[in-house]
C-alpha cells in the first residue's frame, strides 16, 4: 500500500503540450506512471509523442480514459481555472505544480472545493511519488527507493535531499508528498499525516517545514495527540533574518513570528526528533525509528 497514488493511478496532464508540461509528462511516463491523457484546449484529437491522446477538456479525458488524478502544468493566469475544471470533471486528486498562482485565486478555489470529493495538492509543489509505482510531478524519479517511510514537505529540493539521504542509507519510501510553499494551498501537513498514520505500509515519517506561518506548529499539536508512528523533522531557515522573504511566498519571519526556533520547539514537544542539520535528515529518521522500536 501507499497513500494517494499507486500503480493503478490513471493520470491526465493539463498543459501537456507546454514546454514544461511536456518535459515532465515524458519523465513521468518513463518512470512508469500511467499517463492516460493530456489536455490542451484546441488540440483535442492529437497525440502527445504519438502515444498519449490529447483532449480539449478534462471531462472528456476522464470519460474516455478513466483518468482519476490530474497533474497541472498550466501557467499562473489559468492555473486556478484548471484546478476547478479538474475538480468539476470528478478527478479525486488534483496536483498543481504551477508556481506563482495569485493567493486570492486560491482563496476562491479552496472555498469551491468544500463539499467536493476532490483533494488538492499545491500549487507551487513538486508533486507526489510512490516509488516504483507512480510519479506525478517534477521530482527526479531515480533517487527514490521503494519502502516504508513517508516524506512530507513544503519544499521541493529539500524533499529530494531527504529522499536522497534515505535511499543512500538503504531506506525506502512509501509515498513522498510535496505540499508546496504557498500561503493558501491544498493539503496541509495534518491532511497528509492522517493518511500516513492510517497506511499500514508507512512505518515512519520525515516532516520538512520552513519558516513562516504556523502549519508546523499545528502539525505538531496533531502529532502529539494522534500520531502512532515515529516522526523525524527538519525546519529550514534557522538563520533567516526577520522580514526577508526567502523565495517561497510563505517563507518569511514576520514580527518575530514563524521562526524556526518556535517550530522546532513545538515539534520536539510533540515527540518529533528534529534534525540539527539538513545533512542529517536520513540519520535522524533512523534514530527516531530505533527509539520507537
Amino acid at each position: 500500500m501507499s497513500i494517494l497514488v499507486n500503480k493503478d493511478t490513471r493520470v491526465v496532464f493539463q498543459g501537456i503540450t507546454g514546454a514544461f508540461g511536456s518535459q515532465h509528462a515524458r519523465a513521468c511516463i518513463e518512470y512508469g506512471t500511467k499517463v492516460v491523457a493530456g489536455v490542451t484546449p484546441g488540440r483535442g484529437g492529437q497525440r502527445f509523442e504519438d502515444k498519449v491522446p490529447i483532449y480539449d477538456t478534462v471531462a472528456q479525458a476522464v470519460k474516455a480514459e478513466g483518468a482519476d488524478v490530474s497533474c497541472i502544468f498550466v501557467p499562473p493566469p489559468g492555473a486556478a481555472d484548471a484546478i476547478a475544471e479538474a475538480a468539476d470533471a470528478g478527478c479525486r486528486l488534483v496536483i498543481c505544480i504551477t508556481e506563482g498562482v495569485p493567493v486570492l485565486d486560491m482563496v476562491k478555489i479552496r472555498r469551491s472545493l468544500e463539499g467536493k470529493a476532490t483533494t488538492l495538492i499545491g500549487p507551487n509543489c513538486p508533486g507526489v511519488i510512490t516509488p516504483g509505482e507512480c510519479k506525478i510531478g517534477i521530482m527526479p524519479g531515480h533517487i527514490h527507493k521503494k519502502g516504508h517511510i513517508g516524506v512530507v514537505s513544503r519544499s521541493g529540493t529539500l524533499t529530494y535531499e531527504a529522499v536522497g539521504q534515505l535511499s543512500a542509507l538503504g531506506i525506502g519510501q512509501s509515498t513522498c508528498v510535496g505540499i508546496g510553499g504557498d500561503p493558501v494551498a491544498g493539503m496541509d501537513f495534518i491532511d497528509v499525516l492522517k493518511l500516513y498514520n492510517a497506511d499500514p505500509d508507512t512505518h515512519g515519517i520525515i516532516l520538512i517545514g520552513e519558516i513562516g506561518g504556523s502549519a508546523e506548529q499545528r502539525a505538531a499539536a496533531w502529532i502529539k495527540e494522534n500520531m502512532k508512528k515515529p516522526v523525524a523533522g527538519f525546519i529550514a531557515g534557522r538563520t533567516a533574518p526577520p522580514g526577508k522573504r526567502m523565495g517561497h511566498a510563505g517563507a518569511i519571519i514576520a514580527g518575530g513570528q514563524g521562526t524556526a526556533a518556535e517550530k522546532i520547539a513545538a515539534l520536539e514537544d510533540a515527540g518529533v526528533l528534529v534534525s540539527p542539520s539538513p545533512a542529517e535528515m536520513g540519520v535522524t529518521l533512523q534514530k527516531a525509528m530505533a527509539a520507537k522500536a
Partner: peptide, 25 residues
C-alpha cells in the same frame, strides 16, 4: 536551487562554523 534547500544551505554553513553571505535561489 529551490527556496527550502537554499535556506537549509545557509543553515548548514552556519552549523559548520561559517557565515553565509546570501540567500540565492
Amino acid at each position: 536551487n529551490g527556496a527550502g534547500l537554499a535556506m537549509a544551505t545557509m543553515d548548514i554553513i552556519l552549523h559548520s562554523g561559517g557565515r553565509p553571505a546570501n540567500f540565492l535561489d
